[in-house]
Design a protein around this nucleic acid. Structure first.
Length: 120
DNA sequence: ACTTTGACTAAGT
DNA sequence: AACTTAGCCAAAG
C-alpha cells in the first residue's frame, strides 16, 4: 500500500513528487535568508538534480507559499529573475527582506546562505 | 515514444 | 579570468 504509487502519471493525485519536496524545503527558508538549488537538491538526496529543483520552482509559480526568490544558484546570482513577473521583481523581494543585491549578485551570499542540511 | 530543454554545477580549455 | 563542454535527470513539446 503504500502511499507511493509509481503508476503512470496519476495526475489526479496531489503533487507528491519532486516538486512538493522542493516546495517544502523552500518554505522552510527563513526570512532574510537564501539558499542554492544544489543545496536543496542535495538535501532531497538528488544532488545531481539541481536543475530539477529549478524546474520545480518554475512550477511553483502556481504555489503561493514558495519563496522562489530566496533560491538562487550557487554563486548567489539571481539567475531565475527572468521567470518572475517583473524584470527585477526578484531583486526587489530580496532587498525587501534586507538582502543586498547588486548587479543580480547577492552580497554576503555565504553569510546569508541557508543550508537545509545543516539547519534542518 | 523520441527529442529538446532547462531557475544547475563542476570541470576543462 | 572568462568561455565552453559535459554530466545530470525529469518534464514539456
Amino acid at each position: 500500500m503504500g502511499g507511493v504509487k509509481n503508476n503512470h502519471e496519476n495526475g489526479s493525485d496531489q503533487e507528491v513528487n519532486f516538486f512538493e519536496r522542493v516546495y517544502k524545503v523552500a518554505k522552510c527558508i527563513p526570512y532574510g535568508r537564501i539558499t542554492s538549488y544544489g543545496a536543496i537538491a542535495k538535501y532531497l538526496g538528488a544532488a545531481k538534480s539541481a536543475r530539477m529543483v529549478g524546474w520545480a520552482m518554475n512550477a511553483s509559480s502556481k504555489e503561493e507559499d514558495v519563496p522562489a526568490h530566496r533560491v538562487v544558484n550557487r554563486k548567489g546570482l539571481l539567475t531565475g529573475k527572468h521567470h518572475f513577473d517583473g524584470t527585477n521583481l526578484m531583486q526587489q523581494l530580496l532587498e525587501s527582506e534586507g538582502i543586498e543585491v547588486i548587479d543580480n549578485q547577492i552580497q554576503n551570499f555565504e553569510k546569508l546562505f541557508w543550508d537545509p542540511m545543516i539547519e534542518l
